[in-house]
Design a binder for these strands. Structure first.
Length: 900
RNA sequence: GGGCGAUUAGCUCAGCUGGUUAGAGCGCCUGCCUUACAAGCAGGAUGUCCGCGGUUCGAGUCCGUGAUCGCCCACCA
């Protein structure tokens, strides 16, 4: 079988093949290990699958999630760790419900007319339709997901668990039902939680309105409001008790304009004497603050709007008007009556529905709530005590900030897609029974006509249960024993509060007795987010609007993945840089060609030689006497150690850059160049060289594999000639640093040779030596350097285009164009004259740089404070450098003098 | 209004606990199709590390302050 790879690197062909292979070989399936076994003690990961948007395309931010997830999966797999793929709960459901409702509206139908069952059936159909695109993309990335069963978790198990959680919380007094002001979306016709309200700056107006006193209509109290329409529901006007202007008025009545009602003037601290007139209208049904004031003063609750935010029958002649139509009319009417006394520009924030961007209406309604404080306290403690650690750490601050200002969580939604609240209403006595299964009859009056609550639960309620329900809770399962808590949660900050915080609260609460600890995960890695295509305005001005699928097709998944990893430094968002992706595609191409080069030589040896060569049979020990082999082994192991450390620290950027520099800058640029003569030499010699080359190449592929899974898989399989030791490179174990191969001396020696070669190349370029012309070289150096150069004479001559090396005893410093370093002086023997002016400029520049440096060193070393306080290693380093600088400067000066 | 973060080469970004000469990719300049790779090779140029003040023997790095930009949270009419 031939080892040949196609001449051209074509990522798409490779990707399709291996993605299909991984799925077919079930590389992503998970087995539950024996409890207590070594396998069970390995880290476990919670990977949140981000919600797809309704069009079925992935957002760039989500794409990153997925890509990084994949990196983690594959990295951990290679480390021999178990990876667990957890299904996400169903976030697309509500969006889909909205789409279906919109469609029904065009057909003149509604969900109420259609009925619950038929409606849910239609939602389900849509979800399957749009889910297909996501599934395809996941397959492309090598993930296998049983779409119907795992992704849409409206299954019986989860339903049972959700009910169980609800009932238990209710029994513990942590769930209550009450009339409160909630955020109401008049378009979705449901309550939404605080987090689902997005605030936007709004250039509004502040209206000043006169309310006449009831017993003296010639006198007025002026209030200020941004929402005049709500005055129809006013129950009072509040002034601050310390506000002396109004002390006498407290307790008196006002006539509420446009209505026939009288309302009291009350004293409440909420009123700010500095704002407006210091008097504020109180509308308990349409403002959360006013609601609280209303409770304190036992005010009437007059709801003036229906569920679509139209004025209801309590609004008198305004009934039936939309809230904004009503505002216009009310303002006109007030103006006619001379009661509108001022309009000012006033910027404030308005809340909009996260999904449909309709302006949210605070609305008094009966909802289910979770008493959040006890849960939040424990969740705060878990992070304070470092039971859960955030990376980057500063997200803990954000988390605390939110947790400490948390409000009770409204969990009921007036939607149909979701888990229904397990509460039953008695048609006779209105008693509410919360139960695991439908009760036969009312516990209070015995009536058998009971109806289940129509509301469903907030999706984040069930999502928040995921860390334990996914393992079969409330049953005591082996999975729960083994997998809870997981080691790492990987996610973006955008769902820190929605999901992460709630998983922590609910996990700590329900898993309090768990032997391995109650927290749902021990580490949270918050990765950077690529700017979302949704935020087009911002993105366009920054020039970072990109189509992830297009980019992937253009550069290959490996290049895109590598780019995202290399830019994933913690703490900041990523602006996707196409030019960098282009660069990493070139890197993939480099790998490809290096592999082709290796295979080419292998085939040559196998054709010419008497015995076959192998890339994977193990190193030929005799080869290790060669400097370049000791060097590359040392470098490889050092790099492996660094990469492992970076990955442990979640520094994917460092890991990527380290591998990149090693593979391209050392392995390809130097090692392959150095060993070319051996590869092209006798079959025996080439066979030996190939064993080392094969080992280092194979190890490099494994090192790279998490960042570029497709190309590494392809080349790796080719190296094993169709008989790999594992089904996938991902299963082959990750390279670790092996101390015995670390060789400082070899690294130092090669560094000197590299420096020498570079100096010669530099001189040649400067003197404009024809590339094909080889020039003799003079070297002045200590005996050990001479010995080193002599032993590697061929290498230096070849890589630096040198014809003969002469060691000289006299310094070369005065020779025009010569180069001096602390370890050697080197000059070309070349008749063509150097450009004196350019040479003088170069040397003068060099000299001034060195002199500045020397001045610095002198100053520091002359400073007793520095000598006393700086670490010895630093002092020693500067002292040594000072010695070098003296020598270098001396020689440069000599050289300059020589130039005249 | 509260909190968090950013500002380093023309562009996109690294620079970990303060320590010798601030880096990478792309772009740019010069020369090379050297038999793995022109998606390449060799060489090269480019920085008031946002401003100001401070701590320190020493600051891109720590502190304060100002400017600009961004994000998150938020019930002040």
């Amino acid at each position: 079988m031939s080892h040949e790879l196609p001449k051209t690197y074509d990522p798409s062909a490779i990707e399709v093949r291996w993605a299909e292979y991984w799925v077919a070989e079930k590389l992503f399936s998970v087995k539950t290990p024996e409890p207590g076994s070594a396998e069970a003690k390995k880290p476990i990961f919670t990977l949140l699958l981000p919600p797809p948007n309704v069009t079925g395309r992935l957002h760039m931010g989500h794409m990153l999630n997925q890509t990084e997830m994949d990196i983690i999966i594959r990295w951990k797999r290679m480390s021999g760790f178990l990876t667990l793929w957890l299904p996400g709960t169903d976030h697309a459901g509500i969006a889909t419900q909205m789409m279906v409702e919109r469609q029904l509206a065009t057909e003149g139908k509604s969900r109420q007319k259609l009925g619950r069952e038929a409606f849910l059936e239609r939602v389900w159909e849509w979800k399957k339709l749009y889910g297909g695109a996501i599934q395809a993309q996941m397959k492309r990335l090598g993930a296998s997901v049983d779409w119907d069963r795992e992704y849409f978790t409206m299954d019986e198990n989860l339903s049972r668990a959700v009910t169980e959680v609800f009932v238990r919380l209710h029994e513990q007094g942590l769930i209550y039902r009450g009339k409160y002001i909630v955020n109401w979306c008049p378009r979705c016709m449901t309550a939404i939680s605080d987090l689902e309200v997005v605030h936007e700056d709004y250039a509004g107006k502040l209206y000043q309105i006169k309310y006449p006193l009831a017993d003296d209509p010639t006198k007025f109290l002026t209030i200020a409001t941004t929402r005049p329409e709500t005055m129809l529901g006013d129950s009072a006007v509040a002034v601050n008790p310390k506000d002396e202007r109004y002390t006498k008025l407290v307790g008196k009545k006002l006539r509420l304009p446009l209505t026939d009602r009288e309302i009291p003037i009350i004293a409440d601290d909420y009123a700010d004497p500095q704002f407006g007139s210091g008097a504020v209208k109180v509308t308990p049904t349409h403002d959360p603050n006013d609601f609280q004031i209303g409770l304190r003063h036992n005010l009437a609750q007059i709801n003036i709007m229906d569920d679509q935010a139209r004025i209801n029958e309590n609004g008198g002649s305004y009934a039936g008007l939309d809230r904004y139509e009503a505002r216009e009319k009310i303002l006109r009417d007030l103006e006619e009556q001379g009661l509108l006394v001022g309009i000012k520009d006033h910027a404030y924030a308005i809340g909009k529905c996260d999904r449909c961007k309709t302006i949210v209406e605070p609305r008094l309604s009966t909802q289910w709530f979770i008493k959040i404080q006890p849960l939040a306290d424990r969740a705060i403690e878990a992070v304070e005590k470092a039971e859960i650690k955030f990376t980057p750490e500063n997200y803990a601050k954000t988390y605390f900030e939110w947790m400490r200002n948390i409000h009770d969580w409204c969990i009921s939604r007036q939607l149909w897609w979701g888990h229904r609240i397990p509460a039953w209403h008695c048609s006779k006595c209105s008693e509410i029974t919360v139960a695991r299964t439908a009760p036969e009859k009312c516990a209070k009056c015995g009536n058998s006509k009971l109806e289940q609550d129509h509301d469903v639960l907030d999706t984040w309620f069930s999502s928040g249960l995921l860390p334990f329900t996914a393992f079969g809770w409330p049953e005591k399962t082996r999975d729960l024993d083994v997998f809870y808590p997981t080691t790492l949660l990987l996610t973006g900050f955008d769902i820190l509060f929605f999901w992460v915080a709630r998983m922590i609260m609910l996990g700590c609460h329900f898993m309090a007795d768990h032997p391995q600890g109650s927290v749902p995960f021990q580490n949270v890695y918050i990765h950077a987010l690529v700017r979302d295509a949704e935020r087009q305005k911002m993105s366009k001005t920054k020039g970072n609007v990109i189509d992830p699928i297009g980019v992937t097709e253009k550069y290959g998944t490996d290049a895109v993945r590598f780019t995202l990893a290399s830019m994933a430094s913690p703490g900041t968002d990523i602006a996707f840089s196409e030019s960098r992706t282009d660069g990493y595609r070139a890197f993939a191409n480099k790998i490809w060609n290096a592999a082709r080069f290796m295979f080419m030589n292998l085939d040559r040896v196998n054709t010419a030689g008497s015995s076959p060569a192998s890339l994977t049979a193990g190193a030929d020990e005799a080869q290790l006497s060669k400097l370049e082999n000791r060097w590359i082994y040392s470098r490889f192991n050092r790099v492996a150690g660094e990469v492992n450390q970076s990955l442990t620290d979640y520094r994917f950027d460092e890991a990527a850059n380290t591998i990149y520099k090693f593979f391209w800058g050392e392995f390809c640029d130097w090692y392959l160049e150095i060993i070319k003569p051996s590869l092209l030499g006798s079959p025996e010699e080439a066979r030996g060289a190939l064993t080392i080359l094969g080992e280092v190449f194979e190890g490099s592929l494994r090192l790279l594999s998490p960042l570029m899974p497709f190309i590494t898989e392809e080349v790796w399989h080719a190296m094993y000639d169709g008989k790999p030791p594992a089904k996938s490179i991902a299963l082959a174990g990750y390279p670790q640093r092996e101390e015995r191969w670390i060789n400082d001396q070899a690294e130092e020696q090669v560094a000197v040779l590299q420096d020498l070669i570079e100096k010669v190349r530099n001189m040649r370029a400067e003197m404009k030596v024809e590339p094909k012309v080889k020039t003799p070289l003079q070297v002045h150096a200590a005996a050990d350097i001479q010995k080193l150069v002599n032993e590697n004479r061929d290498m230096v001559e070849r890589l630096a285009s040198v014809d003969g090396i002469e060691f000289v005893n006299a310094s070369l410093a005065q020779k025009p164009g010569a180069r001096t370093t602390p370890k050697f002086e080197v000059a070309l023997v070349y008749e063509q004259k150097v450009d004196i002016a350019a040479e003088r400029e170069r040397m003068t520049k060099e000299l001034s740089k060195l002199e500045t440096e020397l001045a610095n060193a002198d100053r520091q070393l002359g400073n007793e404070q520095f000598l006393a306080k700086a670490p010895p290693a630093v002092v020693e380093g500067i002292r040594r450098r000072q010695g070098e600088l003296h020598g270098l400067i001396e020689k440069l000066k000599t050289g300059l003098a020589q130039l005249g």
